[in-house]
Nucleic acid binder design. Structure first.
Length: 289
DNA sequence: AAGAAGTCCTGGGCGC
DNA sequence: TGCGCCCAGGACTTCT
């Protein structure tokens, strides 16, 4: 599911293809996904695309912005003179945009098109004054960001010291803490599972039982798996695709995530799956203690 | 206050 | 083959 590496991959692609385009017209096919008045952005020019945790912000030249959260199944696909016509709709499925899951179309100048697709319709698009973006609930509560991508000006970084403090303050199992966007931003189920495996730590371990050494190892493992996700341009688990509608590659390199019943890459034990905090959780019963 | 459960939604996997 | 059931999950709301 789209986490920091996936959303950053998307941001990089969008930056390349839609910055300096003008939004001529916005076509909203599913009203509930769009909040705010589209007339504020029609005629405006796209200046910059920022990412805060798993959230995207498209900044315009008229003091308005488009804040977007793609949640589980959102896609932002550019079509234009430089873009391929065929796109990946989901795993192994090829098609074109717009399609039946396209709920919003941004018509750009120079014949460009930006389609927002969302199979499960969990995502949202908010049209808002740029200065108001940081006041939105999602952005307001965001914790510091693991330092793996280019940081924005003034953005808090999740340093090792900060990570140690957070772990020390928490009481419950370690995995839900990693995924709590108000504590640290950008980590979701894929990278939490793989990070814990890389660190050799059981996701159920209560945070007070982690030694200082284990906390530092976990910190480094999280940065490592996020970095690896970025290197492979994200993971296509449900239907994540980049700005051109192409799949990521990290799913080929999952350590434990979605590998129930398969062999551990370290010791060949069988990967187990269970629920923790309502989320699918994967472990190697031998490597993770 | 913090933690658990319910909410949104639909394709796909399963059983019969 | 085809129908119906139920699950997955990020962030938010509601309940305990």
């Amino acid at each position: 599911m789209p986490e920091l590496p996936e959303v950053e991959t998307l941001r990089l692609g969008l930056t390349r293809y839609i910055v300096d385009h003008t939004i001529d017209k916005v076509e909203v096919k599913l009203k509930k996904l769009v909040h705010g008045d589209i007339h504020h952005i029609e005629g405006a020019k796209i200046k910059e695309i920022k990412r805060f945790g798993k959230g995207l912000v498209i900044e315009l030249d008229n003091h308005y912005a488009i804040a977007i959260h793609i949640k589980l199944t959102g896609q932002l696909i550019y079509r234009g003179p430089n873009a391929p016509k065929k796109i990946t709709i989901s795993k192994d499925k090829v098609g074109t945009v717009p399609n039946r899951w396209t709920h919003v179309i941004f018509h750009l100048d120079k014949g460009g098109l930006l389609c927002y697709n969302d199979l499960r319709q969990f995502g949202w698009i908010k049209i808002i004054k740029t200065e108001e973006v940081q006041k939105l609930p999602f952005f307001k509560e965001l914790g510091p960001e693991p330092p793996v991508a280019k940081a924005l000006e003034g953005q808090a970084s999740l340093t090792l010291d900060k990570f140690k403090q957070l772990v020390k303050k928490a009481k419950g199992p370690i995995k839900p803490l990693l995924m709590d966007q108000t504590k640290m931003s950008g980590i979701g189920n894929i990278y939490a599972n793989d990070g814990l495996f890389d660190a050799g730590i059981d996701p159920r371990r209560k945070t007070p039982t982690l030694s200082p050494k284990e906390i530092e190892t976990l910190y480094n493992s999280i940065l490592k798996v996020l970095q690896k996700g970025l290197t492979y341009h994200g993971a296509t688990e449900l239907n994540f695709v980049n700005a051109l509608g192409e799949e990521g590659g990290y799913q080929q390199h999952f350590l434990v995530y979605a590998r129930e019943g398969e062999k551990c890459r370290n010791c060949s034990s069988i990967i187990e799956k269970f629920k923790l905090g309502g989320r699918g959780t994967y472990v190697c019963p031998v490597c993770q203690r």
